[in-house]
């Protein structure tokens, strides 16, 4: 069984991912960068579809593009005057950073592209744990059902931990983001100028 993704779809989506990501890090206006992020997230969801991870594509659109990106857009609107055009200096030291990132890219590509990957389910390993539900670890196409069993069978503990993680970040975020009625607030009009 050979999996062969459609090259046209791949290159289109890849171009969209790279283009939108470039816009996220280079756009002159912060709001445009936020919208470009939504575009990147949708394109990545498309790639998940191409990789036949349908459930993850849906999660990506719902949670990432739907919730996380919108929350970031809200944060932009809360902290910025949309009419304020003064965002020319959104980016600093582009050339040093670009050189560093190209180096990182070379390392990552060099390290990954020449490697041998685990491209077949490993039969030499004697698994120390066989899921009780009888599902094989390697499914040709990851079905939602198999995914659900996998989440609940060996990955029970991290699954529970994620709920704790979200709870603690909510408690803490509420404290830090809320105004403190007990203490005086910094005056509204105070504008800090660069030294």
């Amino acid at each position: 069984m050979i999996y062969d993704p459609n090259p046209v779809a791949f290159w289109l989506l890849a171009a969209m991912v790279a283009g939108c990501a470039l816009a996220v890090v280079r756009a002159r206006k912060l709001f445009h960068a936020g919208l470009a992020l939504v575009g990147t997230l949708f394109a990545v969801a498309g790639l998940y579809g191409l990789l036949q991870a349908w459930f993850l594509a849906a999660v990506q659109v719902l949670v990432y593009a739907g919730a996380i990106a919108i929350m970031l857009l809200f944060a932009i609107m809360l902290t910025h005057n949309m009419m304020n055009p003064d965002l020319k200096s959104l980016t600093t030291q582009p050339w040093t950073a670009a050189a560093l990132c190209l180096m990182l890219l070379a390392i990552l590509l060099g390290g990954t592209l020449s490697s041998t990957w685990q491209t077949a389910p490993d039969t030499t390993l004697s698994p120390t744990w066989t899921p009780k539900c009888g599902f094989q670890v390697a499914e040709a196409i990851p079905s939602v059902q198999a995914l659900g069993f996998r989440l609940l069978d060996p990955f029970t503990l991290p699954f529970e931990m994620v709920s704790v993680l979200i709870l603690v970040s909510l408690i803490g975020a509420l404290v830090v983001a809320r105004r403190n009625p007990a203490l005086p607030e910094a005056p509204e009009g105070r504008e800090e100028k660069a030294p």
Partner: peptide, 12 residues
């Protein structure tokens, strides 16, 4: 995550 927030705990 809680430690990031605890570092910013003194909101004012």
């Amino acid at each position: 995550l809680p430690l990031y927030l605890m570092a910013a705990w003194n909101r004012n």
